[in-house]
């Protein structure tokens, strides 16, 4: 898939039979998910609890992307009156993912907000209330929570870009 994408920039990369490209792309992809797997595994709370909301948000956003592409195609092919079939679930997904991202980013509850959680942990680390084995991995955890927060932010902005662009293109067809 990465090969496909890079093929947009440099056509030779898209040739799956070209060995160096296949090797480099596989290595890049594996190190990408490998990194997140690694930070999930070293998390003392099991990792799933922190990463699952990110997983859910990301998964629902991908569904929203698929639905906006579908809604866009329906409208472009002149089927505006049926656009609600994909448009209604899309609207719902945009609402829930935006709310969830907003809460994950701004909530002051340390169990919900990524940044609140990171600050809380940083404070505990600074005041020295953490037992030594937890203090050792705390910097990594703080970094991870920040990273999760920024990723959520990027995903949310990308989703809005896509939805708005879809609406812009659809509006053009609608006016015609």
């Amino acid at each position: 898939m990465l090969q496909d994408m890079l093929g947009n920039l440099w056509p030779k990369m898209a040739e799956t039979s070209w060995q160096p490209s296949a090797l480099i792309c596989s290595a890049l992809v594996v190190s990408g998910w490998g990194y997140f797997l690694y930070i999930g595994v070293i998390d003392p709370n099991g990792g799933v609890n922190i990463l699952w909301p990110l997983f859910g948000i990301a998964n629902q956003m991908l569904a929203a992307i698929a639905l906006s592409v579908a809604t866009g195609i329906l409208i472009k092919s002149g089927k505006l009156k049926y656009a609600w079939v994909t448009g209604a679930p899309l609207l719902w997904l945009v609402i829930i993912t935006s709310t969830a991202s907003w809460q994950k980013l701004t909530s002051s509850d340390t169990r919900i907000g990524f940044f609140a959680g990171a600050n809380d942990l940083a404070e505990k680390l600074a005041t020295g209330v953490l037992p030594p084995e937890k203090a050792a991995i705390a910097p990594q955890l703080i970094f991870n929570m920040h990273l999760d927060g920024y990723i959520t932010m990027i995903f949310a902005s990308l989703l809005w870009l896509i939805v708005l662009d879809m609406l812009r293109i659809s509006a053009r067809f609608f006016n015609r």
């Binding site: 990408g32 797997l37 991908l62 990723i151 990027i154 995903f155």
Partner: peptide, 15 residues
């Protein structure tokens, strides 16, 4: 977004 999301999804499933 599709690509980045896929990376996250695989990582969590792996976890």
């Amino acid at each position: 977004a599709t690509f980045a999301i896929m990376i996250i999804l695989i990582a969590v499933l792996g976890l």
